[in-house]
Amino acid sequence: MAAITSPESSPQPRVYFQTPPGSEQTEIPVRKQGRVTVKYDRKELRKRLNLEEWIINRLTELYGCEEEAIPELEIDVDELLDLPSEDDRAATVKELLVDCYKPTETFVAELLDRIRGMQKLTTPQKK
């Protein structure tokens, strides 16, 4: 490696590195810096992920089938958090589970207990 400084080109000396002649230049994969496009609280995201896994496990028990065979339904936690009361939340979840043949009261109560105190995730505005 050779260091070259040039006082004429800039007031501060600069150092440039060159590969010595005769050595093979191996390409080192350059890892690009990830760009964070949305900022959320990491703990809140972990809570959401755990909640989603719990919901899927409970729905597979309620419907008595594998995850892929669960009827198409979406339990949107943010929509539930927007509702004014626990009764409204419970009614909304029960409507989603209307075609489930097993009792859903325990699931609904546990779900409402788990989302209590959660924050609504909102997408930050772009600057």
Score class of each variant (00 low, 15 high):
residue 88 D to Q: 10
residue 48 R to F: 12
residue 94 K to N: 09
residue 66 E to M: 06
residue 71 P to C: 01
residue 32 K to T: 09
residue 68 E to Y: 06
residue 47 K to W: 06
residue 41 D to C: 05
residue 61 E to V: 14
residue 39 K to S: 14
residue 46 R to V: 15
residue 77 V to R: 13
residue 49 L to H: 10
residue 60 T to V: 11
residue 66 E to P: 01
residue 64 G to F: 03
residue 92 T to Q: 13
residue 33 Q to K: 14
residue 71 P to S: 01
residue 70 I to G: 05
residue 47 K to D: 03
residue 95 E to I: 13
residue 56 I to R: 08
residue 88 D to L: 11
residue 57 N to K: 04
residue 79 E to W: 05
residue 44 E to M: 10
residue 78 D to W: 06
residue 60 T to S: 09
residue 38 V to G: 03
residue 89 R to P: 00
residue 38 V to D: 14
residue 44 E to A: 07
residue 58 R to D: 13
residue 94 K to R: 15
residue 77 V to G: 06
residue 35 R to L: 10
residue 69 A to S: 08
residue 57 N to M: 05
residue 80 L to P: 04
residue 57 N to L: 04
residue 39 K to N: 12
residue 42 R to D: 03
residue 75 I to N: 03
residue 65 C to W: 07
residue 64 G to H: 02
residue 74 E to Y: 11
residue 45 L to P: 13
residue 79 E to D: 13
residue 87 D to P: 00
residue 47 K to I: 07
residue 64 G to W: 02
residue 63 Y to L: 02
residue 65 C to V: 08
residue 80 L to I: 02
residue 72 E to P: 02
residue 67 E to M: 13
residue 56 I to N: 04
residue 44 E to Q: 07
residue 52 E to I: 09
residue 95 E to W: 08
residue 83 L to R: 12
residue 64 G to R: 01
residue 54 W to F: 05
residue 33 Q to D: 11
residue 54 W to Q: 01
residue 82 D to H: 06
residue 31 R to W: 12
residue 57 N to H: 06
residue 58 R to L: 02
residue 32 K to L: 11
residue 64 G to I: 04
residue 51 L to A: 03
residue 87 D to T: 15
residue 60 T to E: 09
residue 91 A to V: 09
residue 48 R to W: 02
residue 33 Q to F: 10
residue 38 V to T: 12
residue 90 A to T: 04
residue 76 D to M: 01
residue 56 I to V: 11
residue 86 E to T: 15
residue 83 L to T: 01
residue 78 D to F: 05
residue 63 Y to D: 02
residue 56 I to K: 07
residue 83 L to K: 09
residue 60 T to L: 04
residue 69 A to L: 09
residue 90 A to C: 07
residue 36 V to G: 00
residue 71 P to W: 06
residue 81 L to C: 07
residue 41 D to F: 04
residue 46 R to Q: 14
residue 74 E to W: 10
residue 68 E to Q: 10
residue 31 R to F: 13
residue 86 E to I: 15
residue 81 L to Y: 05
residue 88 D to T: 07
residue 65 C to Y: 01
residue 84 P to A: 10
residue 52 E to C: 10
residue 84 P to L: 10
residue 47 K to Y: 11
residue 91 A to I: 08
residue 54 W to N: 00
residue 96 L to W: 03
residue 50 N to H: 07
residue 37 T to E: 13
residue 93 V to M: 05
residue 58 R to Y: 10
residue 96 L to G: 00
residue 80 L to S: 00
residue 57 N to Q: 04
residue 93 V to Y: 04
residue 43 K to R: 13
residue 42 R to E: 13
residue 52 E to M: 10
